[in-house]
Simulated assay, not measured.
Amino acid sequence: MNLFRLDASILPGVSTSAQIADLAEAEWTAAHPHGTVTRRHLGTDPLPAEAWALATTAGATPEAEHTPAQREAVALAGALSEELQNADAAILAVPLYNYGVSQHFKTWVDLVLAGAGPTTPLLKGTRTVLATTLGGGYGPGAPREGWDHSTPYLERVLADIWQADLTLIKRELTLAATTPGMESLKDLAEQQHSLALAAARDAGRALAGN
């Protein structure tokens, strides 16, 4: 059994999305002690920003005319898509940045799509946990309602394009404990934290088939 684990936080030492993903992974590992975990951390080991353009332009160029950079980009795109397709289960920890997904996560998605094709269901039927965290509040009635441009994109890619059997764990207000002006939200933030951790354990057990 192979678990694919992806992280996208640029602050791995204090990542709240990683905390949620860690709990889900622990449940999977407990059920599959001899399983393997394939890891990719886009925050600490980002992919080259120019690789997607190189892989895409290579697709419209005869292979014999590919530059060395294009060949490297095509190989990278193929390896990334294969890495995902080989997963028996998957966990992705993806924070919201600047109201959307980070450029390094978007580069990964674009390269996977370049390697596999834009409609290939790489995770078809694969149990997948998405842990996403947001510093502020974006729910109904919040000042930033409608500003979360990350979660819908993530669900579209994972569930609709790659056809994962997706479980979403979403925690908002992660900055309430440290941000001036958010003091009144601390209790709600802590409640969301507790709910997210409980959901992570449940999702991990389901991920493991328990």
Rank of each mutant, 00 (worst) to 15 (best):
T38R: 05
R71F: 00
L11D: 06
N98C: 06
P140T: 14
V112N: 12
L84T: 10
A31V: 05
F4D: 01
A189C: 05
G139S: 14
A8W: 02
G35V: 02
Q19D: 15
T56Q: 13
A31L: 13
A18V: 04
W28C: 06
R40F: 12
G139I: 04
F4N: 05
N86T: 12
E27K: 00
L173V: 05
L23G: 04
A26K: 15
A189S: 09
I10S: 12
V157S: 03
P143Y: 10
M182Q: 12
A131G: 11
W28Q: 10
A60V: 11
L42F: 09
G139A: 15
W28I: 04
Q85A: 15
R205V: 01
A69P: 01
H193A: 08
E50S: 11
P152C: 11
P140F: 14
S81I: 07
A208Q: 02
H149W: 07
L158F: 11
E172A: 02
T132N: 06
R156E: 14
L195K: 09
R39L: 02
A198F: 11
D165I: 03
N98S: 13
A87E: 07
R205H: 04
T107S: 11
A31Y: 10
T179C: 05
V157E: 01
A114K: 08
G117D: 05
D165N: 01
T167I: 13
T128D: 03
N86Y: 06
S9T: 13
D148E: 11
D187K: 09
T167C: 06
G100I: 00
R127C: 01
L188H: 02
T29M: 15
A176T: 01
N98D: 08
P118L: 08
A176E: 08
S184E: 12
